[in-house]
Every structure is written in C-alpha cells, then in structure tokens.
Amino acid sequence: MAGETRVAKAITPKSLSYAQGMPRHHLALFAAFLTIAVLAPFFLYPVFVMKVLCFALFACAFNLLLGFGGLLSFGHAAYFGSASYIAAHSAKVWGLTPELSILAGTVVAAFLGLIFGYLSIRRQGIYFAMVTLAFAQMVYFFALQAEFTGGEDGIQAVPRGELFGFISLEADRAIYWLVLAIVFFGILFLYRIVHSPFGQVLKAIRENEPRAVSLGYQVNRYKLATFVISATFAGLAGGTKALVFQLASLTDVHWAMSGEVVLMTLLGGMGTIFGPIVGATVIITMQNYLATFGAWVTIIQGVIFVIGVLAFREGIIGVLSRKIKKPL
C-alpha cells in the first residue's frame, strides 16, 4: 500500500536550518497559522473559523495514519462522531464542564480506536479500508438506534458550559480561544509525533515494511499505536466540534464524513504537515460559501477533487513543497 501512494519527498536535513527543534520555515509557518487564526474571528464569522479549525485537526489526525503510517482508514467518522456524541451527552445530561466533556469524548474515541485498530491492522490495503469502514458503519447504526443519541434528531442544544467551572463559553468569541488552543497544540503535538524516534520508525515502515521487519521492528505494534493516536486526535476534534455547534448528529458518524476527511487530506497533500490544514480550509470554505447552490455543492466538490487529483496528485501543499524543494 505504501508503494502505491505518492508522498512528498523528505529533503536532506542538513540543507535546512533549525530553530526550536524544527526547521525555520516550519516555525515561520506555524507562527503564520497562529497569527491568522488569532485575527480571523475579528473578520470572519467565528463559528465558521472554528469549524475550519476542528476539521483541520481532524484531517491532521487522519494524515498521521495515511500520510505517515501509509494506512488508509475509511472509517474515521467513527472516532470523530463517537467523541462528538459522548462530549454532547456529557455536557448536556451529566452536566460536565466543557474540558471534561471533550476529554470524555476523546477517551472513548481512543478506546474505540484501540479495539477497531487491533482488529483491522491485520489486514492490508483495500481490505484494511473495508474493515475500518465496516466498524464505522456499526458505530453509525448504534448512533441511529441507541436511546441517548437521539436518533435522527441527534443531541441538540448542548450547553457550552463554563471552562473549569467558572469561565463562561456561551459567547462565540469566548469558546473560540479554547478551540484555537486545542487545535493549535493538537497539531503541534502531531507534528512532534511525526518528528520523534517513533515517527522515524513509522515512516520507515511506510517506506519499506519488509525491511523494517528484517531490522527487528514489530511493525504491527507501531501501526496500532499510530491508529490509536490518530483516532484519539480525531476524537478530540469531534468532541470540540460538538461543543462549538452545540450539536452531535448522525452527520458526524456518517460514512460521508469519513470520505470528507480523506478528501481534505488528499487535496491538501497527504504526508505533508500543513496540507491537511489547507485541505480542510478549502473544503469547509467551499461548503460554506457555495451552500446557496444546494445539492450542487457535492458535485462542485467532486469536480474540484477530480481536477485536483489530475493536476496535482501530491495535493496543493505537496506540489508547493516539491517546487520550493523543502518539506512542508
């Protein structure tokens, strides 16, 4: 599977100058991302920006598994969605504070990731994708049938509550800073994982699995660890999203959601650091501003995706990275 996927090339480390443990241009881009995200709510509708942020984190979590682990999961909605439901239920029914609600959702997503991951990493390529999809469909039907999920209605009017029990998050401008902190540090942490000794082994497995085995690496354990981490951060994004929209619904666990995150990652550039952020931004912006076209959005999205795949197979950031000969 790893051999079939085109991944942006890593560039020789000595040609880059480092600061704070990362190449200077990465540091600059993270600073730019943070600056834009801090200024954005003053110019744009905060809920829209928060949606972009949540999906950026979701796509980055997915990209860890696909772009760096070489594993295509077609069921990541299961982790995003289950965390969304659990966070919404915790906040609304149990009255937990927002940070604990999100944590509860994230923990459940991690646990699901552990079980589903354990059962699916034994399969390769398309079979792996099918197994993950099957598990995600089970979660979907559970969400449809279970009592607490509210069926077609989902869980509505979820209170955003008070952070640590005393900072009200009801205003969009207030919760925005929490969302930005979660997403920014979440993405930074994913960046660190990719650039850790663990990440190095993970990339080696993606590059040449039999060789990694012959060097004594127990590849399935690394894959499982990656799967769980990816599911955890997908859950973190899903739980946060539930509080932002004050809603958990079937859309969050639907297979179309799994497809959307694949789309965002591929369009932005899988195996790049900043690609999924750009991909999520493009897709969410399109959905938002093209909403007046109704059902046509899906078709327009499809056309853009086809053009994207044909014209720049490595994704927007992947192509850019190749042009400037630096990993992005």
Partner: peptide, 23 residues
Amino acid sequence: ENVRIALQRKRGDSYDFWRSQTV
C-alpha cells in the same frame, strides 16, 4: 537516516512519540 534507523534499534523499541527526533 537509512543506517540510523537500524542503529536506533539499540534503544530497544522506539514508542516514545513525544520525544524529539534530535535524540
């Protein structure tokens, strides 16, 4: 880096995803 990935085996298992690869 190719050679280093093998030398890294001396550390045992590299499950420390929170540490910088500068180690």
